[in-house]
């Protein structure tokens, strides 16, 4: 299973593209934040696919986005 590329994504429907990205992102997110990986991955999938592809190749980018997502999620949950 090689790296996911923009070319591979371009042959899929928009929903399938997010699904393919999510399948790759989820294990990485889970290694950073095991308890909220499902929600954080769901949040990250709101981003542009090009950004998501970049995050798959850049652990630092992914980690900073996950940190940011955790902050947003906590703020959101605090409101409820």
């Amino acid at each position: 299973q090689g790296p996911l590329t923009a070319t591979m994504l371009s042959s899929a429907s928009p929903e399938e593209q997010k699904e393919m990205l999510g399948e790759r992102l989820f294990p990485l997110v889970r290694s950073i934040q095991p308890t909220k990986a499902s929600k954080i991955t769901g949040m990250l999938l709101e981003l542009d696919n090009s950004e998501l592809l970049h995050m798959l190749e850049s652990p630092e980018s992914l980690r900073s986005m996950v940190d940011e997502a955790i902050g947003v999620l906590q703020a959101h949950q605090a409101e409820e």
Binding site: G22, S38, E79
Partner: peptide, 26 residues
């Protein structure tokens, strides 16, 4: 604000179809 925010964010579960962000509008 709206009650729909309770469902946010949708959870991604590996192996399941990604439903994405449907317009929550009951």
């Amino acid at each position: 604000n709206g009650s729909s925010s309770v469902n946010w964010p949708p959870e991604f579960r590996p192996g399941e179809p990604w439903k994405g962000y449907p317009n929550i509008d009951p």
